[in-house]
Design a protein around this nucleic acid. Sequence first.
DNA 1: CTGTTAGCGCTTTCAA
DNA 2: TTGAAAGCGCTAACAG
Lengths: 340, 340
Amino acid sequence: MIKHRKKSSVTAQDVALRAGVSRAAVSRTFTNNGSVAKHTREKVLQAANELGYQVNFLAQGLNRKRSQLIGVVVARLSDPFRSGLLEGLLLEIQRQGYQAMVTEVRNADGLEETIRRFTQFRVSGVIVTSGQPPSELVNECVQHNIPVVGINRQMDIKDVDFVCSDNKAGAALAAQQLLESGCKQLAWLNYKDSTWGGINRGECFKHAIDQHQLQALELLAEQDGYQGGRQAAHQLCASQNWNIDGVFCANAQLACGFLDGMREQGFSAPQDFHLIGFDDTELTGQYSYQLTTIRQNIDLIAKQAVLNLQARGRDNTAKQRFDLVPVTLTLRATSPALTD
Amino acid sequence: MIKHRKKSSVTAQDVALRAGVSRAAVSRTFTNNGSVAKHTREKVLQAANELGYQVNFLAQGLNRKRSQLIGVVVARLSDPFRSGLLEGLLLEIQRQGYQAMVTEVRNADGLEETIRRFTQFRVSGVIVTSGQPPSELVNECVQHNIPVVGINRQMDIKDVDFVCSDNKAGAALAAQQLLESGCKQLAWLNYKDSTWGGINRGECFKHAIDQHQLQALELLAEQDGYQGGRQAAHQLCASQNWNIDGVFCANAQLACGFLDGMREQGFSAPQDFHLIGFDDTELTGQYSYQLTTIRQNIDLIAKQAVLNLQARGRDNTAKQRFDLVPVTLTLRATSPALTD
DNA sequence: CTGTTAGCGCTTTCAA
DNA sequence: TTGAAAGCGCTAACAG
């Protein structure tokens, strides 16, 4: 009775044996690395097929000192823009033949731990969509030759590439639209502990209307997201004789909340005021909102992020990059197209 | 001049050398596996600290034939429920000390490729929140001793554990609420190519009202999501003398779309009809919707899923599990609480 | 409790 | 173009 030792998985050795070649030949055909004779290659492929061979990525990565993993840091996926961005990133990462490791991070400690974990898996790159990577950690990545790219983050870290929606252009578009629509009293709504992206948009907005000798009232929501926007609206209405007629918001959630908050008080857009958000999520297009927004090009952002990772993977001496991704104005009901 | 060879990363060997112990001792202290004298342990820890040593997970996994990775299959993250579920899963996966690999899958081929990739990384488990894993692939997992759990999927695959919201209870709650609110003509709205979860809810709903000698009109949306619901409403209104006064929807997106669609035609809930959705996403609670829904307990689902993975990892001979996670009725404006 | 040893499965020089 | 051989960094018997 033959003891048929059941191996848990087929290895390159098994394939080599069956194809009558060496382990090296198998490796070569599967990585398109060295040169393999057409004939050998076919033998290997057939044997592999018959055996159901699959490369062990752990072993491969260990050897190459680099896995085909890309680490992605996310937070607050409940925000549709953020989940949309993640979706875009996943698609692009997969399209380029990588596999995404994703971590939800709640605070700076979490970020640190996460990035450390990423390096332990020898990822090919790290994409940060939330939080500010501590420069010490980034250094660790650089030492391991792991490229890091930040999306919509403050661009103040050495050795990290950034891709960011063109907040300045977006703010200018919003300002232009509001002013050309005849708004006289503008306001800017943001979460009080906003991320850099929001703050940056606000600064750009103020700067844009400053050109017209105007100033924006600054509304700071106590909470983030929908509820924050709603409460901000309530507060605004509670204040005596407010006369705002044009509002620009740091993101779509705030904007929708603000719109609803105003509605609760009996005001609506565009009748009583104009409203422009930022992000253009699915929600903003819905009948009950029909929000005019600045649209971020998620696909492009994702593509650019992965591209940067790859580029720096090839040449880590490249100069730090700051990519601005164009945004567009999506006109809907809350600040409709101008009809000359 | 000493040639100081710059090693790219610190290995257990380096730590061992510095601490004056063997490589094995280092391994032991870091995996809490064998027994280590307190003193040795401390020496190792200190040396590791000084050197900035981090376990190489690729090597560890290769050796153990199992990485601390968990593969998660997702789709259509634009649906808030789905992104919420992913968030819950990420949190739980991390809490249990694993790291999530996530793949967005668009079709059956993609699922197959993905699961294969997961096995190549020797994941500790696979969580499928979208698509139906081909049983052939599942077999491959089982061979590699990789547990698979499906969430809200059809429970018809051998060797896969399932965790699923209690659709039956949810449908019953919805039916009860609608009937007790005085609705006489019920309808059930679903996407025409719905996933199993939706279909199952519908069947349960029909069954529930059947007990009261009632039948539900079946509304099938041509599209999924918000727009599908909206169009379904338009279609309903276009049909002559419809007299529906209570609607149950397969998910929140459809429900919100339906509500908006009806509003566009001049009808609203709860004045003209009652409406209950399924999922209870952030959106459903917003002022403009205030949808009464059946709430799925995402945290529990996530917890249960990871638990099942772990349990089966320990004992893969365990009996196939079908876990039902309780749901609750969240009463809001579109079908308000009964006031006796 | 500790060190020695033999791999895990793959890639990659280096000669042939 | 091919094979032999030396690791990648870690774990897990096994013997002391």
